[in-house]
């Protein structure tokens, strides 16, 4: 229950930053916050109170946590980092051309 609440608060904060802030770097931060919220949620329901899903050599283990959501989250983290780096690169290049990273000011430049 608490994890659901934390997930929703984080996700909505990220979404607010994505649509309301005009600074493009803050938009990227919002996008990453939404990603982090989803990873947190996926990891939270893989925890069923068992052990970390790694066999200790030569021991018989008890109940394991679910390894599949953790592997999926690892994939997601890597792709999130790649897309964030690409977005920041595009913002650097946009700053070269327009001299600003503010969404509204860039729209005014077009007029």
């Amino acid at each position: 229950m608490l994890t659901n609440l934390i997930f929703i608060i984080l996700f909505m904060l990220g979404f607010y930053a994505l649509i309301m802030k005009t600074n493009l770097i803050k938009n990227v931060i919002g996008l990453n916050l939404m990603e982090a919220a989803i990873f947190f949620w996926v990891i939270s329901f893989s925890d069923i109170g068992g052990e970390v899903s790694i066999h200790k050599f030569g021991e018989t283990m008890g109940k394991f946590n679910d390894p599949v959501p953790q592997a999926l989250t690892l994939t997601g983290i890597v792709i999130g980092a790649s897309t964030a780096a690409l977005l920041l690169t595009l913002i650097i290049e946009l700053n070269k051309f327009s001299g600003t990273i503010d969404r509204d000011q860039i729209e005014e430049l077009n007029d």
């Binding site: 390894p67 592997a71 690409l86």
Partner: peptide
């Protein structure tokens, strides 16, 4: 022994290949 590694590089190794292709694409673009 590590079941998460087993999922990543054996059961879903094709997905990991796609994942490293995403990194390659991002690096190339940057």
């Amino acid at each position: 022994l590590n079941l998460i590694t087993a999922v990543l590089y054996d059961y879903r190794a094709f997905d990991s290949l796609g994942e490293s292709t995403v990194i390659f694409g991002a690096v190339s673009g940057i």
